[in-house]
Simulated assay, not measured.
Amino acid sequence: MLLTVTHTTRYSFSEKVSHGLQRLRLKPKPTHGQEVLEWDMDLAGAKPEAEYDDQHHNHTELVSIEPGVPEVVVTCRGIVRTIDNNGVTGMHTGHMPLWCFLRATPLTRAGNRVRQLVASIEADRGDTLNFLHALSRSIGEQVEYVPGTTDPSTTAEQALAAGKGVCQDHAHIFISAGRLLDIPMRYVGGYLRMDGKVEQEAGHGWAEAYVPGLGWVGFDVSNEICPDERYIRVATGCDYSEAAPVTGIAMGAGETRLDVHLSVDEKVVGTQQQQMSASGGQQQNQGG
């Protein structure tokens, strides 16, 4: 599948910025069943300083905010070819050893709620894949998808206790629970083409678990499926903080307003339009 992405992030400042630096993880990974055919980034109010691949092999760009600007606008446009691997992204590669994905982080540290969740799963723990599917279903049943009820600092324990959250919270709970059973887990940030909805308010997040014999396998708790060709993997990490698309500081900015515009659509080539009309896809409703 060919997917087109336009992603605009706008930061508006109430005061003049004296100094600022942002770290951008916005370019999709050219691995694991996807190929980046085109990708361009435009900056307004900022300039590039450096770029590198971090410890999770996320392409990272550092940009500095130009002093005195009222806003910074980052616009990415690209085309990515994806395939459906039934959620399997393959064996582990990269700089981080698998044991790093077993450690608890502030956002995924398990407490009583997560421990009770794991204890309630009746599936055979010896069958890792089956247990993880049962875990995903249980989280979806216990934590309602409600946008605006949590923020990036919400922990897995807090979201589980509240019984509501968004894709980031579903993924963090799933990761927290899996690590209790010594299953390597990681967070994935990216894009999702939702059926019948091109314009979106945010990117998407899900989790991957390392399953012996298969390697990394994705689980989208919010949509109750393993990721398919409608998903674009952009960044991975031990939790959201290591895969966040934009992080940084702005000195003297006063109040900061964030606006995000995102569109993800399929690029139709030749007779593909007729094929799409004749076949449907599973509805995807939750993107952030």
Rank of each mutant, 00 (worst) to 15 (best):
T236G: 03
D182F: 04
L192E: 02
L102Q: 02
E229V: 01
K164N: 06
T9W: 00
I139W: 02
A44Y: 10
E157N: 06
Q284I: 15
S14Y: 05
S14P: 04
D53A: 14
H32C: 09
I173W: 01
A171W: 00
T271E: 14
T271Y: 08
V5M: 04
H172R: 06
A123R: 02
P212G: 04
R233P: 00
V269T: 10
A244L: 05
T4Q: 13
V74D: 01
Y210T: 04
F219H: 06
Q286R: 15
M91I: 12
R109P: 00
A161H: 08
G33L: 05
T9G: 06
N112E: 15
T108W: 08
A156G: 07
S263H: 06
E141A: 15
T150V: 04
V63N: 01
A171K: 01
T60D: 08
C226F: 03
T247Y: 08
Q116W: 07
D169Y: 06
G196D: 12
D228K: 04
G78P: 03
V36C: 03
E71C: 07
A278P: 00
T105Q: 15
G94Y: 09
P97M: 11
Q168C: 04
G215L: 12
G87A: 13
R103W: 12
D40T: 14
C226L: 10
M185C: 12
T82L: 09
I139G: 01
R103K: 14
Y191T: 10
A202R: 03
R186Y: 09
A46T: 07
L43S: 03
P30W: 04
P48G: 05
E229G: 05
E208N: 14
S14I: 11
T31F: 13
F219D: 03
L258K: 13
A207G: 07
Q273T: 11
G213T: 07
M41H: 06
L135S: 02
H170K: 13
S241P: 00
G288W: 08
I65F: 03
Y145H: 14
T154C: 08
T75S: 14
V69Q: 05
T4L: 05
W39I: 05
K47T: 10
G203C: 09
L132Y: 00
T6N: 10
K267Y: 09
Y240K: 06
